[in-house]
Design a protein around this nucleic acid. Sequence first.
DNA 1: GTTAGCACTCGATGGTGTTGAGTGCTAACA
DNA 2: TGTTAGCACTCAACACCATCGAGTGCTAAC
Lengths: 347, 347
Amino acid sequence: MQMDDRKLRILRAIIDDYILTGVPVGSRTISRKYETNLSSATIRNEMSDLEELGFLDQPHVSAGRIPSAKAYRLYVDSLLQAGIIPDNSAESVLSHFSGRVHQMEDVIDHAARVLSSLTQYTAVVLSPKGMEPRLQTIQMVPVSAGSALVVIVTDQGVIRDSVIHISPEVDGDTLYAISRTLTNELRGCTLSGACKALPDLIARMEGNDEVLRGLYGYFTEGQQQPRSPHVAVGGTSNMLSYPEYSDMDKARTFLSLMETRDKLADIIRGSGELAFTVRIGPETGVPEMADCSIVTATYSTRGGQQGTIGVIGPTRMRYSRVISILNMMGHELTDMFTGDNGDGDQK
Amino acid sequence: MQMDDRKLRILRAIIDDYILTGVPVGSRTISRKYETNLSSATIRNEMSDLEELGFLDQPHVSAGRIPSAKAYRLYVDSLLQAGIIPDNSAESVLSHFSGRVHQMEDVIDHAARVLSSLTQYTAVVLSPKGMEPRLQTIQMVPVSAGSALVVIVTDQGVIRDSVIHISPEVDGDTLYAISRTLTNELRGCTLSGACKALPDLIARMEGNDEVLRGLYGYFTEGQQQPRSPHVAVGGTSNMLSYPEYSDMDKARTFLSLMETRDKLADIIRGSGELAFTVRIGPETGVPEMADCSIVTATYSTRGGQQGTIGVIGPTRMRYSRVISILNMMGHELTDMFTGDNGDGDQK
DNA sequence: GTTAGCACTCGATGGTGTTGAGTGCTAACA
DNA sequence: TGTTAGCACTCAACACCATCGAGTGCTAAC
């Protein structure tokens, strides 16, 4: 049997209707709402063919048809092929970022919230991750007698600060002097490179052993315990609004998956570095998400790192809307982090 | 009618049983499991009295009784009066923190996870908040040509860093010199005080107007947009395990409340600065939480700030267990943040 | 004051009949 | 040959009803 144009039209109508209503679509519905010049009997024949081709499933014999994952795949592919249709409701993405937000973490959290409220699905935003950052400046700032804050600036931004212990006698000027030397010596190294170079440096720069050893400890520890990326999740409760998740067990499984950020990050990033992905149902590779779809997009920062934004919803998702919103949001974030709008206050 | 010892014993038995099972408790259950020397009829009479006194509710005439908020209040008060009973399962709190964790945010996130997994309820951990911090050191670190990172150290720790724009000509040494002057001038001021003092300083320290103005902008902006405290939530999905939340609407309301961090922080902190609070049902002051209880404890940091940890569960909560776990966790966090264990690497 | 006995209540459970949306098939039609 | 009307059939959803049993309140006896 062959797929023809009419079958395609009918299939799309079924998908559209199912996405809208969430209930199995009957032949009469299609005949009345979408293909008014065809009778329900004809539609019925076509539906029967579409089922045989694997595009439709029938929950029960006396219910309508629902699209299969294969059908959604076809649907999404044709959407993507046709180009992303700008959605009239998506322009509001911009306005949500009017306030100046400073910290990257804040931007990411905020993006997740906005994304989930715009789509009414669950949104995930991952902080950028790219090649290993290179040192640019090291600076130690006295915090209190006996401790100092280490700030490391790399070409990708600021490494989160941490406090190390030093001898109480060391004053701010000494710290600055050491910082300057270190900066000169280590500029351009990667973090792990710095780690290797430090013992040698310590040997050369005698006199401030204690400070340097503290710093060394900080570096090596930082290596062993890599900073996990920031994962912001928004709108988990949105999922409960969909009848797909009226089953408590399913809902709980989903929610606890959303809580294990590491796993979630892996899932979201599972699509590699592709600029745009749509994974439908089983394609997610996560059994718990067999009836979810994941749409992801990426954004970039000044340093060329890639961050990922994603929307998780039922397979019956408003794909075109989600895709267009994600697209805009990706551009928005990229602009924000590269400072294209001339208003770059991010780190 | 008067409350006597036997009534109290029966009431406690009812509460214990209800906490355990979650189903209304009948007179026979009490007579068999708790007060074996009394017949169910006697228990029935006592229960009837307890209901009249407002300690028990009856969902339907042919169901057992369930404890009222008033009953839980009595129960919890007597628990607290008797002192916190160390729970044998709580000692594992310690082991969860064996790995050295550096960032305060990480500790807080981790604490929320541990707390929720130990209690099987929803846990909330708020970052410390205390009196207005006073400046200790200001340091600017060059990030790239034209921008610098501002690090502000206060007596309470490090204010999160932010990048400001400066003239590309300004080099690291100049920045350090300015930083030094600023530190000398502003040490001991509050942030808002610094904000007021800055214009005057800028006038005096001519020559580096641009840097200073950038800094001033940063200060004033920081004032307008106060940094909201970090709120970590763990185990929201745990709540769905309890039959109290088998109603989808209720579950959704609860979850979306857990998602609005600001509101949640207000609720958790609603108890003021008390070291320990238990709010039962309506006492939470939040209509959405009429059938939840909130138990909170505090922890302190070196700077004397107070953070809050809380557990949210159904009113039918294992209070003694939760209280003892929260108690331990509070001490744990305090030790960690004050460095009592001699292993203080936190900021 | 305690208890046994009994009538009563009412949610939960499970079976039954009805309804209606939807299908598949067949035969007639263009 | 494709389309349509008609019809028998299926089956989930819903409402209805009877039954069951846990639990109560009351009364009378101990």
